[in-house]
Design a protein around this nucleic acid. Structure first.
Lengths: 139, 139
DNA sequence: GTTATTTATTTACCTGGGTAAATAAAATCG
DNA sequence: CGATTTTATTTACCCAGGTAAATAAATAAC
């Protein structure tokens, strides 16, 4: 088995998915990463920025930048908490109101992307993806 | 099956892989996308830029930029062909000489990433990834 | 042969992933 | 309490994905 080819395929499909999601979010003035955060906040409610990036496993500076953009475009608020170092992030009313529509559009795109897989294959894929790892030297 | 969660996992693993590959390429002053091009040129020999981006399914401007960087850092040459619009891309001697070492390092990283999958699971994963699609309206 | 169209590439500008280093506030240590 | 260390966030700067529009050369059309 050519592992390089397999991982190349993996990358290409990921880009294809991102492209499709961005396309589908375009009409809402949203981008895929922003949607991920929006969805997370909708599920979990108020979070500090650290909670956000740790949960999404994205680096802090990347998250900061995306959150700043989302604040500017009116999707979230970033209020200073009791601990004045931290920023508490929350959805705006507008975001909450628009959420169902966006979710519906996303679900269409996601279902389309996965449309050739049976329920069983979906489970298999999830299981196999879960096995992909980087072995890190533990100190 | 929560498709959103599955695709989120998909993204996270892809980022993990990219991170690992970039890490492993760091000592060669290379980046994952540059490696992909380097590998392609090693396999296929001289190519025009259009052949490169069409083969890798990456947009032309993205490819141009990466190729310019690779030219600057001495991995490739970009010569004007008979058709003066096109640029023919080729590996430098340095690149050819260093190639085996880099390939070896990459293979270690890739094998590590896939180390929890059996040969059969690798085939299954490839098959499932191949089924991921975006249905485009055909004109 | 001159004009119009296509094709290859580039430029300018987004978003978004990363790292390294700088703040600033809280917590800890002595 | 004052000094040190930790923690949360930000800033600056990479690389890399995308789109839209501009060149420039080749081709096609007239």
């Amino acid at each position: 088995m050519d592992k390089g080819q397999l991982l190349h395929l993996f990358n290409q499909k990921q880009r294809l998915l991102m492209k499709e999601l961005n396309d589908c979010l375009k009409s809402f003035d949203l981008y895929s990463s922003q949607w991920t955060i929006l969805y997370t906040l909708h599920q979990k409610g108020k979070m500090t920025q650290t909670e956000v990036w740790q949960y999404l496993k994205v680096e802090a500076p990347t998250t900061t930048r995306t959150l700043v953009r989302m604040e500017k475009s009116g999707w979230i608020t970033r209020k200073t908490g009791k601990d004045k170092r931290e920023r508490v992030v929350d959805l705006t009313e507008t975001a909450k109101k628009k959420f169902p529509q966006i979710l519906a559009a996303i679900k269409v795109a996601e279902s389309s992307f996965l449309s050739n897989l049976s329920e069983e294959e979906l489970h298999t894929l999830e299981k196999l993806l879960g096995k992909l790892t980087i072995e890190r030297d533990e100190a």
